[in-house]
Each structure stands twice: as structure tokens, then as C-alpha cells.
Nucleic acid binder design. Structure first.
Lengths: 228, 228
DNA sequence: ACGGAACCGTACCGTACGGTACTCTATTGC
DNA sequence: GCAATAGAGTACCGTACGGTACGGTTCCGT
């Protein structure tokens, strides 16, 4: 029971061969560097030193290959779920801050941005199959990690809420803001926005002011309140 | 001084002829219905009953036409800026709630989603020209409307903050959360997420708990605090 | 040693798109 | 009335992509 977040591991685990993984890796590199226009079957085959025929044999359709890229990347990122319950209030807060910082780091990553752009670009056609996959493999995974954290905070009396979905929504919003969409649109974060650590701490401070209990040791009590 | 948000109107106003506007309208319809795959020059010409040659004469490149679509849509949406300063605290709060509700409505609109998808899909190539345009014409316009509201709240003593950018970020995050990206990925909001009004009120309530002053008439004081 | 499977590299095919050229019609200015 | 311009409709061109087929090579099992 070290990690409770992998209950649906077996549902549709990709389980690619090393060769296929290498191909997917090259495809991701192509996507990051050149966008979806660079992600042609010929380019992938050339970059991965394989034949187009093998691509179709291994992955099926081109869309299947894109889906495989998402699955592969999601499986790679699988965060350490840090098994143990938070010790005390300060530890809990630090864990939340770490989650927020990780979230910002992941969302601003090259591969994440490229895959999200790809999925969003295809969301209009194909009944948004890639989009659903990104949501399921990426977003929901993050959400479950956060939810587990929030629940433990509730159980230990550091947080106070009735609807965990609303609490998560507030947490996500305070941490990310419109940064993600802005980056997706090609705007690279300016100076202040690059300080993920500080941004995370500020957001968690605000989150505690909304959902924290009057925990004596919870707040840094006074200075550096990070208000306003 | 009825509206202070139009200081840069003359900067690059599109000013299209009625015929061109009709073409852009048809193009938007095509984009919404069929995604970017449906947005070929031939399809646009057919839908708008014009020749491809005219398209190139009027708009230049195909990318120019896409840019024109963004500008045209942005000019169409131009929100009423409701000129007058907020009267009292309750009015100010209502104005914030209205802004939040409008924001959710706009972001979930068909055309907005389609244009954002298009711009994001192209953000990897073209040095994200469309993305920049969407940011400038859409996002920044919203931001300025909100900033004006926040500033007046600060002046009138209903709000308390030092960094307006951080305040806006919190406001946006609390209101939108991850809803926008989820919709961009093709996930249509479920039951609770469709209640923009309630969502807006809850978010503004939380925003006041972060940035509101101890305004006697500001909070509904007690019941329906919308906490947790 | 031999047969077969896997697979790379390349050539090939059909299609679709961006962009241009050309013809024919209607409207406008004089 | 008449030239001239604008524009619709269509045909056309080059290119690029997804997907398939084929020859040659390597590797593995027997």
C-alpha cells in the first residue's frame, strides 16, 4: 500500500518494447522542436532510423502513434507519490508547496506544452480523442495526487472543506492562474513568472487563507504572510 | 472619458468592408463547425461565395486571413465597459461577479474555443504569431477591464493589494481554474461546471476573503458565505 | 547451413491543400 | 453606349503528406 494512486495501472498499460520507446522518444523530440508540422511519418521514420512500414506495424495508424506518444510521456512522468503521510502541519504545508511547484514545472515543460498543443489542435476533429487522453493521463493524474494530499490535510485537521472538487479547483487556479494558456499560446513567462518556487509559496499561502483551519503551527504566523 | 479602455483603438484597427466581414464570418462558422481542417481556402471561398483569388487579394496570405479572423472576432466581442464607477460596495461586488460570469461565458463560447484551439495549434510554428494576436486582442483586453475594476476597488477602499498583477492572477485563477484548458482539450463542462453564475459568485467570495478589506457592507456577513 | 521473420531504405500512389492564372459576367464611371 | 474594373467560377500547378509495396539485409531458430 505504499502508493494508492496506481489502482488503474493495469487498465491499459502501454508496455512498449525498447525499440518502440526509442521511436516515441524521437517523435517527442521532433514534436518539441518543430511542432506538429514536423511530426510527419516520414520525419519520424528518418529520425528514428526505422521504416515507415515498421511504424504502421508497431503503432497502427498515425493517430495511434500520437496517442502512444501521450501514453508514453505520461508513463515517463509518473511522479513519485512520496508514500508517507505528512508528519505535522509544517510538513503538510511544505508538501502542498512542493506539489504546486512541481505542477508549475511540469506544465511549463517543453514536452508537456508540445503535447498539449498537439492535443488541443486536434480537439476539434476526431471527437477530441487525443484531448481525452491527455486529460486522463495527465490532468487526472495530477488531480488525484492533489486530492490525496487535500484529503490527508482534511483528515489531519489542517484543512477544512466539504467539496474536495471545489477545493482542488481553487488550489489549481491560485497556483496556475492563466499561465498555462498563455504559455500554450506561445507567450513565455516573463521574469516574475519564472519564479515557480515563490509563486507556489504565495499560492499555497492564499489557499490556506481560504481553506486552512486556525492551526496554531500551520501559518508562519505574522511576517512573510505573503498576503496581497 | 466614458471608456478608458480604448486608448489604443487606432493602433491597428482592421476596418473591413461589409463583404470582407461577411467572408470572415463564414470562415469563423467553418472553423467552429469543422475545426482547422475545414478551414481551407477553397472551403472558405465556397462558403462565402467568392473566389479564392479575391481571398488572396483582400487578405493576402492564408495566415493573414487567420489573423484577420482573430481581429474581427475580437472587435466584435468588445465588451461594454459600463462606463460609470461602481457606486457602493455591494455594487462593486456585483460588478466583479458580473465580470467573472462574463469571463466564463466568453471563454466557453464556440468561437472563442475554436480560435484559441487554432492559435494554440499554430503556436509551435510561425513564432506563434496567431497566439500573440489572441493574447493581445483577447486576453489583454479582458485583463485591462479587470484591472480597471480592481483599481477602482482599491481606490474606493473595498480592496487591499499592492501588486495588481498578482491580484488579477488570483482573481482569474479562482474564477476559471482549469476549466479553460479542459474545454480546449475537448472536455465539455459537466453539470456543476455549467453554473457560471454560481461559480462566479463563489470565486468572487473567495477573492474578497483574500483581497477584501474589513468593509462593513462589503460581505454578505454570515450566511451564504460561500466558504469551503 | 538454411529458411524465415523482422526490418530498413526507398520508391510509389492517391489525395488534398496553398497559391496562381484564366475566362466570363456584372457593375460602375464617363 | 462603352470601356474598364471587380469579382465569381474553374482549371491548373507544385508540393507535401499518409499509407502501401518492394528489394535487400540482418538475425534467429532449427
Amino acid at each position: 500500500m505504499s502508493d494508492a494512486l496506481v489502482q488503474d495501472r493495469v487498465s491499459d498499460a502501454p508496455d512498449y518494447t525498447p525499440r518502440q520507446s526509442a521511436v516515441l522518444e524521437e517523435a517527442l523530440r521532433l514534436l518539441v522542436e518543430g511542432g506538429d508540422r514536423a511530426l510527419t511519418t516520414a520525419a519520424i521514420a528518418r529520425a528514428a532510423n526505422c521504416s515507415k512500414e515498421s511504424l504502421y506495424k508497431w503503432f497502427g495508424d498515425r493517430d495511434d502513434l500520437l496517442a502512444a506518444m501521450v501514453s508514453w510521456q505520461a508513463a515517463k512522468v509518473r511522479v513519485r507519490t512520496s508514500s508517507a503521510m505528512p508528519a505535522d502541519s509544517a510538513d503538510f504545508r511544505r508538501r502542498l508547496e512542493e506539489f504546486a511547484s512541481d505542477l508549475l514545472t511540469v506544465l511549463s515543460g517543453d514536452v508537456s506544452l508540445a503535447l498539449n498543443r498537439l492535443a488541443i489542435g486536434q480537439a476539434s476533429r476526431n471527437d477530441s480523442r487525443l484531448g481525452g487522453l491527455v486529460l486522463k493521463r495527465g490532468r487526472d493524474a495530477i488531480r488525484q495526487r492533489a486530492s490525496a494530499l487535500l484529503r490527508s490535510g482534511l483528515d489531519m485537521g489542517h484543512l477544512e472543506f466539504t467539496d474536495i472538487d471545489r477545493a482542488y479547483r481553487a488550489l489549481y487556479g491560485l497556483v496556475v492562474g492563466d499561465l498555462h494558456v498563455r504559455m500554450l499560446l506561445g507567450d513565455e513567462p516573463a521574469g516574475a513568472d519564472r519564479d515557480f518556487r515563490g509563486q507556489a509559496q504565495r499560492a499555497i499561502g492564499q489557499f490556506f487563507r481560504l481553506y486552512g483551519t486556525a492551526d496554531p503551527e500551520g501559518e508562519p504566523s505574522g511576517k512573510n504572510h505573503n498576503q496581497h
